[in-house]
Each structure stands twice: as C-alpha cells, then as structure tokens.
Amino acid sequence: MSDKPELSLEQIPANRALVEELYGHNLINQETREYALDLLYPRSKWGLWASYFLSIIGSALILVGIIYFFAFNWSKVPIMAKFALVESTILICLACAFWRGIDRLSGKLFLLSASVLVGVFLAVFGQIYQTGADAYQLFMGWAALIFGWVLLSQFAALWIIWLTIMNLFICLYWDQAVFPSHQSEAFIFSILGVFNASFLVLREFLLYKKPSSMNWDWLGAVWVQGILFLAALIPLAIPMHQAIWESSYEGTLAAICGAVLGTIFHVLAFWVYRFKIPNMGALSTIILSLCLLGEAFFGRFVFKSIDGDGLSFFIMGVITIAMFTFAIVQLRRIHAQMEAENVPS
C-alpha cells in the first residue's frame, strides 16, 4: 500500500491504466472501455493510419525489390548501367527527401531509402571491381557514408538501421580482422553491449534532459527504447551466463570483464529506470534477467553439489518460487510507488 495522501477525483489523472483498471474489475464493458480510450487517445483517423501504413510498406517493398534486382541480376546488366541505376536512384531519393523535407514522414522515408541504397552501391562496387575487401569493410563504409544523413534525419527507424549496420560491422571486424584467441573471444559481447548501451544512454539523455532547444520527441517511441535496451542487455547478459555455466570460461579476462560489465549494466539500469526515468517495462526486464541468472547460478551449484537428483529438483523448485516471489514483491512495491508518483506503466 502506498503512503501517498488520498487525492480527490479532480486530482486523479485519467489515463490508460485507470481505464484498464475499471475494465479489469468488470466495472465497464469493452464498448465503454474503447469509448474512454478514444477520449483519452483519439485514434479515429483511419485514413491517416492507412496512409502511413501504405507509405511504409510500399517503400519497404520497392527497396527490397531493388536490392533483390541487384543481388541476383548484376551479371546480366552492363557495368555502367548498374552504377547509373543505383546512383541515380540514390540521387532521386535524396532530391525527393529535400523536396518533401525531413520533418515529414515521406521525406524521412526517402532519406532512409537513399541510405539503404548506399549499401547496395557498395555491394555492386565491390562485385564489379573485385576489391577483395573483407565484408566488414562494406559495412564500415556504409555506416560511415550515411552517418551524416542519419544525424540530420531525426528519424528513429534510420538510427536503428544504422546501429544494425554498425553491429554487423563490429561482429565481422572482430571475426575477420582481430582474429580473437580463446582467451579474448568473449570480448565481443562486452564491446557490442557497451556500444549499444551508449546509444541507450544518449537517447535517455537527449529525451529527458533536452540539452538544446531541438525537438527530441522523435526518440520517444517505446519500441526505440525497447530495441536499444535489449540490444545492450542481451550481449551483456551472455558473458554472465557463460561465466556461470561454462567452466572453460572461468578465469579468462574476457569472461571476467563481460561479467563485471554485465553486472554494472544491470545495477545502473535498475537505478536509472527506478529513480531517474521510472519505467516498469525496463525494470521488469532487468528483474527477469536477474532471475534467469539466479536460476543458472543456483542450478549449477545445487545440481553439482547435492547428491540425489530428487532433492536437487526439490531444492531448485523451492529456490525458484522464493526468488520469483521476492522479485514480484519488489516489482509490485515499485509499481505502487510509481503509481503514487503518477508514472505511466
């Protein structure tokens, strides 16, 4: 139970959680629920919704079609025609982006298309001139060439594509240029985790601290935070699991570094999403990750050190219930506090 003073009806904000609460207790039916949500979050512009939908899917299909064409038919197309076609398409996309303006969805989609086509251009270039370059160089060049547009775009989807290209570059570079030894191969997880986490930090900083007068609301979509958060959490959690499960990793610098970084990330993320930027989704994911780590840790310890499989299973069952109960109690307490602070779930 929260300790907050009781608010009057005028002071209680109406939001999705409140409507779902009423629906959850059968105080309103589905029709009334939708009516209330329509009042709070108007969404009756079906035409606009369909327009966005058609723009995004239509652009994606055309882009994929172009990539397909170049990926499988280049041997039949003259060299100059290949370059002319790709480069002119890039220029047309850029011109259209400039004409529409990057403050509109169509302009952003044209810029995104141009960015993807740069990758196509590099692939075609590499094929024609047989540069012998490693695959990581294509992704490195691609990421470098489009970085300026990405900076200007104010478009979260383009940032995510750029981050994907960068992640591919890092992985391929690690594999094709660094040639890691057994001692250091687990470092890749730390590198990827820290790289993605830095963009998560940047996103939260720009969105919540607003260091300049620029509009950072385009970073506010929940899916952007979700992708960045998972892209940082998963690589940083893998070395922690490896350190628990695989004896061959014990003692290697890479495993220790990865496990330490993973621990630091879990602690810092919990602190940030609990106290600085309250967010139940992120907190629950961290707690779930910690519970899975706990399962791995206790599982290894119990099954290794206790004779008699039956007792091991029983102890693990009890530990699991106790651990998840503790996690749920803490999350419910935090949820109640967040509600008192009026933070949306």
């Binding site: 994911t285 509600e339 008192a340």
Partner: peptide
C-alpha cells in the same frame, strides 16, 4: 488509489 492490478510485465514474471 494505489491498488491497481498487476501490469502485464509482472504477470509474465509470475
């Protein structure tokens, strides 16, 4: 007030 039901994240954890 302060007694709303569990969000979906906590249900998944359960």
């Amino acid at each position: 007030q302060g007694k709303s039901e569990m969000p979906i994240y906590i249900r998944i954890l359960v």
